[in-house]
């Protein structure tokens, strides 16, 4: 628990903040410019969001691949799997329905 490790940890927060800020700025800029086609901007937004979420988990919520974090990591991954099934499934089912109700 020296000041040395303290500096290192502070640096991690700064890195995380910088990465997150960049990953926020890019999609905002893409949308603000208004020149990027819709499907491209959609992918940019999705990709940046995914990356940024990972950055937050890594640098702010301290989830990583170390042994002590194994349990938390498994929990988060499992939750994300279920989230994908449930949210993705809902969107699929309802999109399917509305497609079939189109005249």
């Amino acid at each position: 628990m020296t000041l040395e490790t303290g500096r290192k940890e502070l640096r991690l927060y700064v890195i995380g903040f910088a990465l997150a800020a960049t990953l926020t700025a890019v999609p905002f800029a893409v949308v603000a410019s208004g020149t990027v086609p819709r499907d491209v901007s959609g992918w940019v937004i999705a990709l940046c969001a995914l990356l940024q979420a990972m950055v937050h988990f890594r640098y702010f919520l301290h989830i990583d691949f170390s042994r002590q974090k194994r349990e938390d990591l498994q929990l988060v991954l499992f939750s994300v799997l279920l989230l994908a099934i449930m949210a993705g499934g809902t969107i699929w089912v309802l999109a399917n329905l509305s497609a079939r109700m189109m005249p």
């Binding site: 926020t24 999609p27 905002f28 893409v30 949308v31 990027v36 819709r38 901007s41 959609g42 937004i45 999705a46 940046c48 969001a49 940024q52 979420a53 937050h56 988990f57 702010f60 919520l61």
Partner: peptide
């Protein structure tokens, strides 16, 4: 803050793109 990433991406950016 992680949830907010979803909010600004889906609601605001997705809505305005």
């Amino acid at each position: 803050d992680v949830v907010w990433i979803g909010v600004f991406s889906v609601v605001y950016l997705g809505g305005l793109a």
